[in-house]
């Protein structure tokens, strides 16, 4: 596993993360009303985008599995779901840390927060199903659940939007404009997080495939 390619990739990812940290803490200007607390934004938002992207990859991999029954598709689905849950957890932890000093509350049932939480719940249940299902049906059942999880997203969004119409103005897309230097820091951090998530996914994907290879070999040996 310690191939030169992997070492090079790890070095690049670490460099990107370090550069992103530098951008977020030093280069980006301090926000007028929120002060330095706002800098958590550079981790919060890129994590969210990365998590959503990974969940989307999970859906594609699940559909790919349902159509082609390919073991590689399932390995990709496992990797993207697990890493996605990790990044989604980061979003759900950094959110309240940021909200407490700025909004004065840890949590509110706002549409973005609630949708993210429900998405997290759905994917945790997905991982639980994978853990608890027996035999060779796991990939199929998990892929089916992933399709359900995706189908429910619009309903979650609509219902919570109507349920809680009064929510605090979000920082991006809420009518306010973001300083170009801040955009710069966000996008660099997003790139760094994407690279980091990609690396984790790749490692997890390879691990999953190797594990399957070992299991298949053992099963064959048992037959002979």
């Amino acid at each position: 596993m310690k191939s030169p390619v992997l070492i090079a990739v790890v070095v690049v990812v670490l460099a990107l993360l370090a550069f992103g940290l530098y951008q977020a803490l030093v280069v980006a200007p301090t926000e007028q009303t929120m002060g330095d607390v706002q800098r958590i934004f550079y981790y919060h938002v890129p994590s969210a985008w990365t998590a959503f992207l990974l969940f989307f990859i999970n859906l594609i991999a699940s559909i790919w599995y349902l159509i082609g029954r390919s073991g590689d598709a399932d390995a990709l689905a496992v990797a993207s779901a697990e890493v996605g849950v990790v990044f989604c957890t980061v979003v759900l932890i950094t959110g309240p840390i940021w909200a407490r000093p700025v909004w004065g509350i840890w949590w509110t049932w706002d549409v973005r927060l609630t949708s993210t939480l429900v998405l997290w719940l759905i994917y945790v249940s997905y991982l639980m199903l994978r853990r608890f299902s027996t035999g060779g049906q796991t990939p199929l059942l998990a892929a089916v659940l992933a399709v359900f999880g995706f189908a429910v997203v619009p309903f979650v969004y609509l219902s919570i939007r109507f349920f809680r119409t009064q929510h605090p103005q979000p920082v991006i897309g809420g009518g306010g404009s973001l300083d170009p230097a801040m955009w710069h820091a966000v996008l660099w951090n997003w790139l760094a997080f994407l690279a980091f998530a990609g690396l984790l996914c790749w490692l997890r994907y390879n691990l999953e495939r190797k594990q399957r290879g070992i299991e298949e070999t053992l099963a064959l040996e048992a037959l002979i």
Binding site: V118, L121, M128, S133, T134, L141, L145, V156
Partner: peptide, 21 residues
């Protein structure tokens, strides 16, 4: 039906999907 401890599994996968309903 195809999981270990199936009676526990059903609410764990059903509730998150049922939240909007």
């Amino acid at each position: 039906l195809r999981t270990r401890s199936r009676e526990v599994m059903l609410p764990l996968i059903l509730f998150p999907i049922s939240i909007p309903a």
